[in-house]
């Protein structure tokens, strides 16, 4: 079993406005919890979308589980949670149970059908995340925090080995946000799931992440949170005072 879950080599992405990511090279090992941070427009979301094949890579390469991305077919190994507010159509008529069931499609062959065991699996994951009582609610009827948990349930119901989260807490209040990060940390530890989490909140993620990737079109830092806090590059970038504040919670 490959221990290199994500590998990129000199990966670059461009939009019409110009280059968004430049020469990104890094590796994520099995069991890592990587916080991807950086200012607005630094290419954080583009990076994870490129790793999932949702954005075209203009130069360089990326591999998942040792397989180059264009040939990667084992999507059942991957769970993805995008920014929920962008995603959900408030009038979409799906129930929570149906929505979480979509996460099992990657495990199915044509014609894809969910059976009783799948329904039990959905109920188990809803129970684990404390939202079993929402099973028959429509997704448009949920609060931001509830919706976030439902989409997390959808992302992990297939027991992925890699969980990719793109600013999952943007719509949440600070308290719910803290609980969410802790929940992801627990999934990372108890299930051994490798986590890539994009966030603005470098201080809060530092409490849980095993590694930090600081991005501003290029990788400015990649290493442990302790190294991040002692890094001269970060110190010169933020100033010592800001760096101290950012690392204070750790």
């Amino acid at each position: 079993m490959s221990d290199k879950i994500v590998t990129t080599e000199l990966l670059s992405c461009s939009y019409r406005e110009g280059r968004v990511l430049e020469d990104i090279s890094f590796q994520v090992e099995r069991g890592d919890y990587v916080g991807i941070v950086g200012p607005n427009g630094s290419g954080k979301s583009t990076l994870v979308k490129a790793l999932l094949g949702l954005v075209t890579i203009s130069k360089g390469s990326a591999s998942l589980f040792g397989t180059p991305l264009p040939h990667f077919r084992d999507w059942y190994k991957v769970g993805y949670l995008p920014q929920s507010l962008h995603l959900v159509n408030p009038v979409f008529p799906a129930t929570v149970h149906e929505t979480v069931g979509l996460g099992l499609l990657s495990l199915k062959r044509f014609p894809k059908r969910l059976n009783r065991a799948d329904n039990d699996k959905i109920n188990t994951i809803l129970d684990e995340l404390g939202i079993l009582d929402l099973e028959h609610k429509l997704i448009g009827e949920l609060s931001g925090g509830q919706l976030q948990r439902v989409l997390l349930a959808r992302a992990i119901v297939n027991d992925p080995e890699l969980l990719v989260l793109d600013e999952p807490t943007a719509a949440l209040d600070p308290e719910t946000r803290g609980r969410f990060y802790a929940m992801i940390a627990s999934i990372n530890r108890s299930r051994g799931v490798t986590v890539l989490l994009v966030t603005h909140d470098s201080g809060a993620i530092g409490e849980h992440a095993s590694k930090m990737l600081y991005l501003d079109k290029k990788i400015l830092f990649y290493g442990s949170f302790d190294q991040f806090c002692c890094s001269h590059e970060m110190s010169s970038l933020f100033g010592e005072h800001s760096q101290h504040l950012m690392c204070h919670r750790h």
């Binding site: 094949g53 995603l87 996460g103 499609l105």
Partner: peptide
Amino acid sequence: SFSDELAKVSG
């Protein structure tokens, strides 16, 4: 219908 992005990442 739910989300193109999520569907793609589900294979």
